[in-house]
Design a protein around this nucleic acid. Sequence first.
DNA 1: GCTACTAGAAGAATCGATTCTTGTAAATCG
DNA 2: CGATTTACAAGAATCGATTCTTCTAGTAGC
Lengths: 349, 349
Amino acid sequence: MSIDAARPTINDVAERAGVSRTTVSNALNGKGTIGAETIERVKRVADELGYEPNAMARGLRQSKLGVISLLIRPLESLDTAMPEGVDYFLRFAGSAALAAMDHGYSLMLISDPTKPGAPPSSLAADGCLVEAPIRNDPALTLLDRKRIPFVAVGVDPARADAFPAIAQQTERDTRLALDHLLDAGARRVALVTGTDENSWNAHARRGYEQWAAEHGIEPMIRARDETSGVDGGRTVAHELLTGDAPPDGVYCLTGRHAAGFVAGARELGVGVPDDLLVVAGSDAVMNRTSTPTITALDLRPVETARLAVDALIRLLDGEPVDWSSLDPASELVVRDSTSRRNGDAAVTA
Amino acid sequence: MSIDAARPTINDVAERAGVSRTTVSNALNGKGTIGAETIERVKRVADELGYEPNAMARGLRQSKLGVISLLIRPLESLDTAMPEGVDYFLRFAGSAALAAMDHGYSLMLISDPTKPGAPPSSLAADGCLVEAPIRNDPALTLLDRKRIPFVAVGVDPARADAFPAIAQQTERDTRLALDHLLDAGARRVALVTGTDENSWNAHARRGYEQWAAEHGIEPMIRARDETSGVDGGRTVAHELLTGDAPPDGVYCLTGRHAAGFVAGARELGVGVPDDLLVVAGSDAVMNRTSTPTITALDLRPVETARLAVDALIRLLDGEPVDWSSLDPASELVVRDSTSRRNGDAAVTA
DNA sequence: GCTACTAGAAGAATCGATTCTTGTAAATCG
DNA sequence: CGATTTACAAGAATCGATTCTTCTAGTAGC
């Protein structure tokens, strides 16, 4: 329970070993030319004292802290702490942390650095990952202005090519989902998006509109707040299914909305998959274990996070990055909500 | 896409504004006595240049970075990236990040700092949270030696009172689960633990043994690697249910083992809850949405993380902490696997 | 025997801020 | 009108490392 007794510094080690700071630094880092005996002694003393170089001092000198930060935009709008179903972000963060560690970095979770009360440490990292930036995202503007290297995951819808980004193939993914609904027998397909102004919602909408036009389908689009969760899905189900021309297929971008839509349909006596086919745009655990299980697009958060971290670290090292090759390749996982087969089948993008 | 053009420092601002470093610092931080006009000018110049104080330099001077780190012990043994079902840790991490932000800190996810390749930044934080330390945990020893303030969540089973910790009431929780199984009609209750040597497994085992002795129940204990997941639960179900005196109730500490146990039982024609009652010691999303839904102990990761962060920050601020009052109060969420009622019912600890 | 080199280690500058001390005008006071 | 404040700002030390430069013996070369 001891917090007192300040941590030993390089000076303490130097003094106790009877050498200079320089010698301690060189001895411990294997640089310069130091006698074997001296190295031995310095190491022993350092160990005795429990000396550990101060990461800030070292970082200051080398202008490199060994930390990358992660800003998850959608979490800013979720006021409550981590409701169930935000699997995508949690798995993304976990995978990013592991990928960062592989490169000798730690991962720091930060809040919006443009907000007034933001911790100064939110800009201390060597580089930053921004998940799902919003339209004209002020965080991207800030990072750019401060010259902090960053990689966005998903583009800023208003500035698609302005910044380094892992551009998710949302339009292609959307077609994958919609085509699957068509193949499975749906003829009137609706779209339920979130309300955040990120590329995910924007591009899915655009993809849907084009697809609907191509197939001569009357567009039916509803938007529900991401935070509304399962309940938002339920209400939109009531709205659409009790209308004049109810859909027989629906593509809900978030897993929670999809789960809610299924629940809402059941309340109205609409059976899934018999009367209604449902696809979720993000694969959450609840989609895999619910009854019926729900067909979903696996956005591969684990792989995407790793790609993003790798790209950011190349950026930090001044190495070239081929942005066009960074395609996470989503996969549609077919489940009960669009078929009566048992077991999962995969349709790769 | 610009990374060049080094970030402006306080000296750049000072020069451009025609004042000294000191004045810039004071003007921006509202300290000292500076003329209103000068403050105005300095702020304008700082803004023009996109100046942001270097967090490392500031941290070095003030010996405080504004970062706390989180070491999740069980993740060290999980080699693959975040398998489904590790909800507890993900929610814990997410909640801790939000709680830290409330206090003006960022949360850094780190890997075992005692491992050779560990990033130096893993010891750069102002304080550290250690989730589920193992027996004689070397990370705790290291943190103690380096004099880095830390709070453990769960005790080191070999050194229960040696370090500041949020002591989870595992034995009490275990009784809660076991008593519930008894109430629901089970007479031969088995325990399935993990193999990590943390207080969770150790105390649950101890609690079970005492409880079994008190109730004259023959102890049946099996341990399965935490990493074995659903499959581990399935195999242990086969092992126990095909034995001489199969249990009619089982308490699986991890949610994945519980789910696997249910699946294994079904394969053997053993119905849940008709022939077998199942309780999980950790509430995962899959327990809520599976068929049947599984009764589980909600360990309240969100609340626990917040308590831990608050305690750590009090420690950092040199304020007293009443460790005995930090009780997350688990709750048993009763579901289909131990009853035929519909809906959830809660039994508070 | 004297220069040239090398090994080993010390000295000093540096990274970018904060903070303690000092200095210099103008304003106030008795 | 001389002595003190006061307001404002500059100067210098400091945080804890790394790194570039310099110094000093001892050894080798001729």
